[in-house]
């Protein structure tokens, strides 16, 4: 791990360019009525997909996870896995209510 591995200045700039463009796209796309054009929830899906892509780039390259040990990968994955548990099992209740209060 003590090897410093990274993608060098051009690489960092490349990642930045991606993030920059993705931010512009997400803004522009959010103003279009994708729900109407494709299917309900399309806007949400696209916005989150872009956010995930951005996050992945930051995690892999800015945070150097790409070159880290399996353990670090596991820390990252388990963080999100537990978040998913919380979402899934909470929604499992809300989405299956026959009567939803108020």
């Amino acid at each position: 791990m003590s090897e410093h591995q990274h993608i060098g200045i051009p690489g960092y700039l490349g990642v930045f360019a991606f993030l920059f463009i993705a931010t512009i796209i997400t803004y522009v796309v959010a103003l279009q009525d994708l729900d109407g054009m494709f299917f309900p929830g399309a806007n949400t899906l696209v916005a989150l997909a872009i956010a995930f892509a951005k996050m992945t780039f930051v995690v892999l390259f800015f945070m150097h996870v790409r070159w880290q040990s399996r353990l670090i990968w596991m820390a990252v994955v388990s963080g999100f896995f537990w978040l998913a548990i919380m979402f899934a099992y909470t929604l499992q209740d809300y989405l299956t209510r026959s009567v939803i209060g108020y």
Binding site: I85, Y89, T96, S98, G101
Partner: peptide, 16 residues
Amino acid sequence: LVWGHHMFVSGQSIYA
């Protein structure tokens, strides 16, 4: 994965 067993009578869904 089991926290809902404290909420059986809270009004959570039967499925949950």
